Amino acid sequence: MAAPSAVLQSEWTKVKSVRSTVWTLASALLVTVVISGLICLLIASQWQNTSEQDLRNFDPTNTSFAGLILGQLALIVFGVLVVTGEYSTGMIRTSLAAVPQRATFYLSKVAVTGALALVVGMATSFLTFFIGQALLGSHSTSISEDGVLRAVVGGGLYMTLMVLFSVGVAMMLRSPMLSLGILMPFFFLVSAILANVPKAKTVAQYFPDQAGSKVLQVVSTGDARPYGPWGGLGIMALWVIASLIGGYLVLKKRDA
Rank of each mutant, 00 (worst) to 15 (best):
M1Y: 04
A2Y: 12
P4G: 02
P4Y: 10
A6K: 11
A6E: 15
V7Q: 04
E11N: 05
K16Q: 12
K16M: 06
K16Y: 09
A26D: 04
L29I: 07
I35T: 11
L42Y: 13
I43M: 03
S45F: 06
W47G: 10
Q48A: 14
N49L: 12
E52Q: 15
D59C: 14
G67W: 03
I69A: 04
I69S: 12
Q72H: 05
Q72L: 12
L73F: 15
V77E: 00
G79H: 11
V80W: 03
V80L: 07
L81W: 13
G90V: 08
I92N: 02
I92P: 00
R93K: 11
S95W: 06
L96R: 15
V99E: 13
Q101H: 07
Q101W: 02
R102K: 15
S108M: 02
K109S: 04
K109F: 02
K109C: 02
K109P: 00
V112P: 00
V112E: 02
M122P: 02
A123Q: 00
F126G: 01
T128A: 09
T128P: 11
F129E: 04
F129Y: 14
S138N: 12
H139I: 05
S140K: 10
I143G: 00
S144Q: 13
D146R: 09
R150K: 08
R150S: 09
A151C: 04
G154F: 13
G155F: 07
G156P: 10
G156V: 07
M159H: 01
M162C: 09
S166Q: 06
V167P: 01
G168H: 11
A170W: 13
A170D: 02
S175E: 05
V190M: 13
V190P: 11
S191Q: 15
A192L: 12
A192P: 01
A192T: 14
L194N: 09
N196I: 03
V197I: 14
T202L: 02
V203P: 00
Q205G: 00
Y206A: 03
F207S: 08
P208C: 04
D209H: 10
G212C: 01
V215F: 13
V215N: 07
V215W: 14
V218A: 02
V218W: 12
S220Y: 10
S220A: 11
S220W: 05
T221R: 09
G222C: 09
G222A: 10
A224Y: 08
R225Y: 13
Y227Q: 07
Y227R: 03
G231T: 12
G234C: 01
G234Q: 07
L238P: 00
W239M: 10
A242M: 08
S243P: 08
I245L: 11
V250G: 00
L251F: 07
